[in-house]
Design a protein around this nucleic acid. Structure first.
Lengths: 176, 176
DNA sequence: AAATTAAAGGATAATTTTGTCCTTATATGG
DNA sequence: CCATATAAGGACAAAATTATCCTTTAATTT
């Protein structure tokens, strides 16, 4: 390989990747959770139409890497948030037994519950009695988030999506 | 080094670190933001007592890795959220020019603003007109978070902390 | 002016999260 | 029973985030 020092400054491209200029992601949910939510809504939509969905199909439809999606589906399956069957005509599905599963169940299965229980500043002894500077401010917001995620069943979400719009692709906004 | 295959199954310890059993962090803010918030509150507390704080001191007081804290302080300084002076008796400080800086400024300086503007499912075309399944649910919560972070000036927070308790260590809960 | 002190910044390492590939297990249809 | 399709899982790779170390720059003190 050519190990000569970069002659005309293409190191510039490394430059833009440097700390200073890198933009972080930092959403409310991890990517894994985002994929999980999209996937499980999609599965419910299929199940409401009496069909299963395979990992590949799901990954492609929700615009998530297929192999990674498969891993996440395993987690959801282990957590009993969805069912799965192997073999021909197999795939992932949801039924009555999953009717009451909520967004919170999904997020917890994938990300654990530090989002709901941990101190927002990462302090391990934060509590009502010994609150961090943001404690009381954050608690209220987090409670709202928690309630919202707890109140929304996945099935309900899927039904809403179907009612409002039949084109899955558009609703999940997977196209660019 | 001993490269023999693990004879009595201490691979178990690798095992517990495997995907399945690993617990994610996944807080509202990144670690960098958490450190930034703790650091800047600490700096304000010191400044309100007319003294500067060095990177080492700050890192140790807020229970964050010192070198990493130094990096974050650089970012805060570049973003004009704090001031810095080099040399003997130097350090980081905050003054009138920083009075109106808010928690939101801090989070944005460190994490960018995907937390505030990005779709919670990571979809790039999510909007009022073309909403993702969580859009309207999340928007309200995020707005509350945004408002809270916008309304709280760091200075105000530091004052509150000082009023409530003089022991910095305890308030920031750096012990255990 | 020189020595010293502390921030600024570069390079690199460790860890975590995200992502891929390949093998194994298992259900279904023929 | 056999072939096939698909989930489950292991091993590994890439990327992002977190963390450390060392050199350079610039104030302050002497």
């Amino acid at each position: 390989m050519d190990k000569r020092p970069d002659p005309i400054g293409f190191g510039f491209f490394a430059f833009v990747k440097m700390n200073i200029f890198r933009i972080k992601s930092s959403y409310m949910f991890s990517k894994a959770s985002q994929y999980a939510i999209k996937a499980i809504i999609y599965i419910w939509m299929k199940s409401l139409q009496d069909s299963k969905a395979g990992a590949k199909e799901i990954g492609s439809e929700i615009d998530a890497p297929e192999a990674f999606t498969a891993k996440i589906l395993q987690q959801l399956s282990r957590a009993k948030l969805i069912g799965s069957v192997k073999g021909p005509n197999g795939g992932f599905y949801a039924d009555e037994s999953h009717t009451n599963k909520t967004l919170k169940d999904v997020v917890r299965a994938v990300d654990g519950d530090s989002l709901f229980t941990g101190c927002s500043l990462g302090l391990n002894k934060c509590s009502e009695k010994n609150p961090c500077p943001l404690h009381f401010e954050i608690v209220g917001i987090r409670q709202k988030l928690d309630q919202m995620l707890t109140n929304k069943s996945i099935k309900h979400l899927a039904v809403e999506v179907i009612k409002g719009e039949t084109n899955i692709k558009r609703i999940l906004q997977v196209n660019k």
